[in-house]
Design a protein around this nucleic acid. Structure first.
Lengths: 194, 194
DNA sequence: AAAATTGAAATGATCATTTAAAAAATAGAC
DNA sequence: GTCTATTTTTTAAATGATCATTTCAATTTT
């Protein structure tokens, strides 16, 4: 049965340890030993399971992106109107699971390193393209064509900017508040097409 | 007379080299030797003039922040109405001098590292507080109180997000286009207070 | 017993920073 | 203006520290 049981457990543990350790120390300076210590393992284990530090970072980002994707799809499933679906994308971005100090830290590190690592850049593009596609689809029925792209771009930049600022914040984040504000901002922009 | 002539020249050269080198290689991995080579100098020179790698980075950020401040003040001087002044802040952020691939790269690196370096964090807070203050002052007469802070926060996050996205872009940026879009976004948000 | 997992210690590479001596600039006296 | 003396600037090489990664023997799991 559980042929890969321990392997799966270690992957999970080490990725979680990476998130915590990167949040504490920064992607640039965190060492394998620190990440390993965070998981109660040794640096050699990480190489055994992931092959290298770079691959561990990539696996960690892949995990975060997949969580974001799932959060979006979950909410999409129950949304009925285009407006509901637009809000679903927004809510997913600021969901309780994702919008935490730890994860915001990682995202910044991810953004900062994407231009210098092919694999991260690829992940970044895929992720952004997905959000863009969802926004485009929903805005089609909500705003007139001449404003649509400007507005979509503005919304996406706004959301990225919120994450950026959140990463600078050392007190606990408030996802519910972030969702509320983001919804307000989105409605403000949409409504101005009277 | 020019007692500090060479010193000033080297400071300028090395800060410019830092901007270029960090853009090319990333803050995390760029070495003193690479920065020095970019300026046609040696790594020892950098330590002679700046004391350490960290202090060089700090000096570089200080330079960029001061350029942003000056760009804002310049435009503020000729702006007459609150609306003009709001646009002055926006235009400064996306001015031809500042909104370049190289500088966007550095800003991301700066944001990513601010949480882990006291000195960078300080600079970041001062800068953000300045933009916040300007926006608050101008929005006071432009939007009703209940929407004001939400809107200000949204505008600031939007601008940060634009920089973030620009840093991922490997084709030359278009500052004029960015100014136009940012103005549109700002007007869209302001006008929605009918 | 065979395969998977773990970690202590070794390896090898990379770098920031220091050192010390040379080279260049500057000033003061003539 | 020219010639020392002094200070400033520059670099090559040395230093010392840090780390990712590998190795290999021990341990655990199947």
């Amino acid at each position: 049965m559980g042929r890969t049981r321990i392997r799966d457990i270690r992957h999970e543990e080490l990725i979680n340890a990476t998130i915590t350790a990167v949040h504490k120390r920064g992607y640039a300076v965190v060492t394998m030993a620190e990440i390993a210590a965070e998981a109660g393992a040794s640096a050699a284990s990480i190489n055994y399971y992931f092959g290298s530090k770079e691959k561990l970072m990539e696996a960690t980002m892949r995990r975060l992106l997949s969580q974001l994707k799932n959060a979006m799809l979950e909410r999409y499933a129950t949304a009925k109107t285009p407006h509901d679906r637009l809000m679903a994308v927004i809510d997913a971005n600021f969901s309780d699971r994702l919008f935490t100090n730890e994860q915001c830290s990682i995202w910044i590190q991810f953004w900062a390193n994407a231009p210098y690592a092919e694999s991260l850049q690829r992940l970044h593009r895929i992720n952004r393209a997905r959000v863009t596609a969802h926004f485009r689809a929903e805005l089609r029925t909500l705003v007139p064509e001449e404003r649509r792209e400007t507005l979509r771009e503005a919304l996406q930049c706004y959301m990225d900017g919120v994450w950026l600022e959140a990463a600078q914040c050392d007190t606990p984040l408030n996802p519910a508040q972030a969702r509320k504000e983001a919804r307000e901002v989105a409605d403000l922009m949409i409504q101005s097409q009277d």
